[in-house]
Design a binder for these strands. Sequence first.
DNA 1: CTCCATCGTTAAACACTGTTAGACTATCGA
DNA 2: TCGATAGTCTAACAGTGTTTAACGATGGAG
Lengths: 222, 222
Amino acid sequence: MGVKERHERDKEVLRARILDAARELFVAEGYRNVSIRKIAEKVEYSPAALYSYFPSKDDLFFALAEEGFRKLFEFTNDPQAFASADPLTAIREGFLRYYQFSRTHPEYFDLMFVDRSVPKISHEWERFGFVEQMIDEVRALIRRAIDAGLFPAETDPDVAFHILWAAVHGPATVAVCDRLAPDENPDALARDTLEAAIAGLRAGIRTTFTPSPCHPKGNDSN
Amino acid sequence: MGVKERHERDKEVLRARILDAARELFVAEGYRNVSIRKIAEKVEYSPAALYSYFPSKDDLFFALAEEGFRKLFEFTNDPQAFASADPLTAIREGFLRYYQFSRTHPEYFDLMFVDRSVPKISHEWERFGFVEQMIDEVRALIRRAIDAGLFPAETDPDVAFHILWAAVHGPATVAVCDRLAPDENPDALARDTLEAAIAGLRAGIRTTFTPSPCHPKGNDSN
DNA sequence: CTCCATCGTTAAACACTGTTAGACTATCGA
DNA sequence: TCGATAGTCTAACAGTGTTTAACGATGGAG
């Protein structure tokens, strides 16, 4: 009876080893330079063997992207900063951490947010439940800031979240994609753009982004 | 005497035909799905022949990226809107056009700003002189807004430009990279983020981005 | 204990990719 | 007319993701 279970455990172990090998290779050499054959060699199996663990290369890297979101969660989640400090400082800190993540783990960031050959991500947000949790925490933080009078009362937390996210995501992508001139500093740009977005929200703007319902995902409105 | 010139003209013609074929394929099927062989078949030459016109595939797509910047220039440059309207409207309009370009020509935008396998772009900004001209016009526009009292007097036009650019570049990349949930509207996000950045600049923020000298590119500080 | 089925693994192949070496040929200047 | 040169070709190299068919070990049933 326990035999099948042992086998399943073994499979799980090898699956993890494959993922480890893939991760090691891709953080070192970048996503594009990792081939199934290299991973196979690293785990000392034939290339074909990997296909009984991951249906395709994309699925393998999709798993790594999921790992990346977990990493991002840990990276940005500082309960201390979130709870104690004044909401605005916490918000600033949180979004700057998002940006800093893109600098510390550019390969993960690439996989999670820019690579176009891992397109399934946007259509499988439901699978990243903890991402929604993550966003919820930030929305709560923004709500606190509204309640404290730091943002206008009519501010929609979800809209504000997306604006602040976009404000740091811009500099993050130009940095990851290496599209800044050598003498331009992306870190400063991230700080400034975030600062401008925060100040803009505080000043109050008319927004057009669709406020999402309580559980924003799962609408069938296309 | 005229023979050599005729030959050079012929070469130029074929070079253009290759570029045409490459463009047609890549706007239709995306950069990653275009192979040298497919281009060669379309122009009815052997794959090897292309290599006497473009040293590598990257160089070919670098040429297309250059074309893209020219397209972007035309797309955003509306002298009428720039000159007549009030500076703030013109600025809004200009940056929204940048965003709209990313939606209308996602493949070009990908090549120009997100694809990591065309990395030479950031190190060859000098070659895109018209880009600098383009930016200069926007900086002049911002200066006009400052003079009109629409932005604080201490605003640095170059810093403001980069902030506004980042504000629309964020939504542009999430849209191009397809990282928004199906029910989230990138267009609205672009408008809102830009609006927030403009309002933030108007409110006045302390910035840290390095103001660039008169001709910002060409420093040897790195 | 034997037999069979099943499962994990494999080598080999398929259909691609970018790129290059070497042969061929047509054209041009002397 | 004779090289030289420039342009193009075929064929190959080294690599890619993926699939197919065969192999061997292992576990359960009779």
